[in-house]
Amino acid sequence: MSESQKTIEIEVLRYHPEKDKEPHKQVFEVPFTDDMSVLQGVQYIKDYLDGSLSFRWSCRMAICGSCGMMINGEPSLSCQTFLRDFYPARVRVEALSHFPIERDLVVNIEGFIEKLESIQPYIIPKEPRTLAQGEYLQTPEQLNAYEQFSSCINCLLCYAACPQFGLNPSFIGPAATALLHRYNVDSRDGGKAERMELVNSEEGVFNCTAVGYCSEVCPKQVDPANAVNQNKTNSAADYFLRFLTPKGGAK
C-alpha cells in the first residue's frame, strides 16, 4: 500500500457461533478506489485482513441475488453498491435484517426456501397436454400480466425491508407472494385455487400493513408490495364468492 493510497473504514457486524455469544462490531481499514463495490471491500478484508470473515456472493453483477447485506442500515446488493457513495465516511455492513445470523454476513434462509416450495413455483397445467399439441401461445398482454413478477432473483432484500416479516417470520412475505402471483396470473396456469389457500391463510397476505419499503429496495423492480396487495383483493373476492358458489373459495 503506497503512502498516498486512500483508505475507507468498513465496520462489519461479526458473529462466530462457536465462540461469540452475540454479534459484535469490528472495523477494518480498506484501500479505497472509486470503482470499488462494497462487495469488493469485504472481499479485500477476507483476502488480506481476516480470512475468517464469511459472506455470500457469486455473480458480482446483480443477477444471482446472493450478496444482500444491510449497508448503512439499508437492504442492498453489495455488488451494486459502491464505496464511493460513502467515502470518506465509514460504511456499516451487517447481515440482512429479520433473518437469523448463521455467521458474520451469512443469514439462515431455510424458512424462505420452504415458503418458495410451498407456493408451487411452476406452471400447473389446466389440463394434461400432449407434445403433439405443441407449445403454449401467449399474447403480449398475457405476458405483460406476469413478466414483472418473474424478474425476482430471490435476493431477499424485500424480507429485510419488511417489519411484519421481522415480527412474524411465518408470514409468507413479499418475494414468495410475488412469485405466487406470477404463476396465478399466467394464462397457462391452472393452480390458482390451490395457491389461494396459502394467500388466505394465517401466514398469508393480511400480515401486510402496506409499509411499502419492500418495493423500494427491490433491485429488479418486481414491486412485491403490489403482488401482496392485489392478493388482498383477490382473497376478499375469494371469501365472498364462496357464498355464491357451492364449492371452492376460502375455507
Binding site: 458473529y15 457461533p17 462457536e18 452475540e22 454479534p23 442500515g73 439499508e74 435484517s97 429479520h98 437469523p100 445470523i101 448463521e102 439462515n108 425491508a161 417489519p163 421481522g166 415480527l167 409499509v211 411499502g212 419499503y213 423500494e216
Partner: peptide, 24 residues
Amino acid sequence: NKRRPYVRSMDGWWKKNPFFVEYM
C-alpha cells in the same frame, strides 16, 4: 452441531430506518 443462528431483536424496529419512522 456448531450452528447457533442468532436472532436479532425487533425492539424499536420503527426507529431503525427513516422509511419506518415516516410510516409510523
